[in-house]
Amino acid sequence: MKVKDLVDQLSLDVRSFKDGLGNDITGAYVSDLLSDVMGNSKKGNVWLTLQTHLNIVAVASMKDLSAIIIVGGRQAQEETIKKAEQEKVTILTTALPSFEASGRIYQLLK
């Protein structure tokens, strides 16, 4: 499955780096603790979080994640979007809370 398929299925908003919609998804990881994501996410995972500050971009870039999905209707800060464009990190947003977004993605990926 590609990032674009998730965007279509869940009607996600694309906030940065549209070229990343072609990325392959290897799975998903849900956490708001950045060290946990650093330690335990896998290459190609989509990452669901409610964090919106610019360090999420460095984490996603360093772990080669396929996209970040910011949940719960939160919006990425402007500097986060800017950094994400620079670092070629795709940021998506959804009004769905963590649990609902995770459940739907789980169904699609399993």
Binding site: D36, G39, H53, N55
Partner: peptide
């Protein structure tokens, strides 16, 4: 609140 400071930094480095 930024999601840092979870007490995982030094253990992650060691690991």
């Amino acid at each position: 609140e930024m999601g840092w400071g979870a007490g995982m930094g030094l253990p992650n480095m060691k690991k």
